[in-house]
Simulated assay, not measured.
Amino acid sequence: MRIALTGSSGKLGTVVARELRASGHEVIGLDVIGTRSADFVQVDLTDYGQVVDALTAVNDTHDGFDALVHLGAIPAPGIRPDVATFHNNMPATFNVFWAAIRLGIRKIVYASSETVLGLPFDVPPPYIPVDEEYPARPESVYSLVKHLEETMAIELVRWHPDVSITALRFSNVMVPEDYAEFPSFDADARARKWNLWGYIDARDGAQAIARALEVAPPGFARFIIAAADTVMSRPNAELIAEVFPEVPVKAGVGEHETLLSIDKARRLLGFDPQHSWRDEV
């Protein structure tokens, strides 16, 4: 496929571009920053005209796209003021979705976020492991935008039943260079409780995107995307008893198994995370 990739210069985007190209796809990166090349276009996603032009053709380098992967955003709360986060992320996603659909792109995969599950869990989750079955609980403006984006996607596919939009609720993205710090997390169970001790290796994030591009049918679906394990050496039973003693625990939670359930992604996308920090440290 020829794939437009927004946010191609980001932490996840650079790995996604590399992995998709290695799989044989043609990837053209779209981002507000990046190095000039034949497969990169500098685009301000908050400017609809620029988005339309970039998705149509730039200097006749291509004649449109088969799919869109949208990762471009201010990537977390607290980086910029709340209003700046909203005014960047919400218009950017609307522009990208709207332009793609208008231009006939029928396969869209994008980065939603684990934050819609209720992070930082100052209000405990309804149960553990968390999954996609309970209503969104945004606790920040960043997360509110992610919830609004999912709501927008639901309506867009209702209007356009032939369009596929897949929201991947990525956990905290990590690369191998990050893993040296992980053993220090054991000292304080509360230091990483904010996302139930979860993470996702960027290479497995790219795998989830590739699977969604390949198999997601028309319509909207949301999936939690996390590593198969936690960031902790301490067992889950000990962590939950210390930090979330009143939260119901579903049967079958393994000693170090992720508490951000990836069962749905495994079942419907064929997602199968291959990378663990335990293999790197």
Results as ranks from 00 to 15, higher is better:
Pro245Ser: 13
Val175Phe: 00
Leu45Gly: 01
Val130Ser: 02
Lys264Trp: 09
Tyr127Val: 13
Glu132Phe: 06
Gly205Asn: 05
Arg234Thr: 15
Leu55Ala: 01
Thr166Phe: 11
His62Asp: 08
Thr14His: 06
Val163Met: 08
Arg211Ala: 09
Glu246Pro: 08
Gly64Trp: 12
Pro91Leu: 11
Val83Ile: 15
Val116Phe: 09
Arg158His: 12
Glu155Arg: 14
Met232Leu: 14
Thr56Ala: 08
Ser113Asn: 04
Asp162Gly: 01
Met152His: 07
Ile101Asn: 03
Glu133Lys: 07
Pro235Gly: 10
Phe271Met: 08
Phe86Thr: 00
Glu255Phe: 11
Thr151Val: 13
Arg137Lys: 11
Thr56Val: 12
Gly104Asp: 10
Pro135Glu: 11
Ala76Val: 03
Val52Lys: 14
Asp229Ala: 09
Ser261Val: 12
Asp204Leu: 10
Pro161Gly: 03
His147Pro: 00
Ala111Gln: 00
Tyr48Gly: 11
Ser184Ile: 01
Asp186Leu: 00
Ala227Tyr: 06
Arg267Asp: 12
Ala226Val: 13
Phe223His: 04
Tyr199Ala: 02
Phe223Gln: 01
Leu30Tyr: 04
Ala153His: 10
Gly49Ala: 13
Leu148Trp: 13
Glu177Thr: 11
Gly49Ile: 01
Thr14Pro: 05
Asn95Trp: 11
Thr35Met: 09
Ile165Asp: 00
Val249Gln: 15
Ser112Ala: 14
Asp178Gln: 02
Val58Pro: 04
Pro183Leu: 04
Glu181His: 05
Thr166Glu: 01
Gln207Asn: 05
Asp272Pro: 00
Ala191His: 11
Trp159Cys: 07
Asp31Asn: 09
Glu149Pro: 01
Gly205Tyr: 06
Asp162Leu: 03
Gly72Cys: 09
Leu20Trp: 03
Ala84Asp: 15
Trp194Val: 04
Ser9Pro: 05
Arg36Gln: 14
Tyr134His: 11
Thr258Ser: 15
Gly104Asn: 03
Val249Cys: 15
Glu255Gln: 15
Gln42Asp: 04
Ala92Gln: 05
Phe170Ala: 00
Ile28Ala: 14
Leu144Phe: 10
Val157Thr: 09
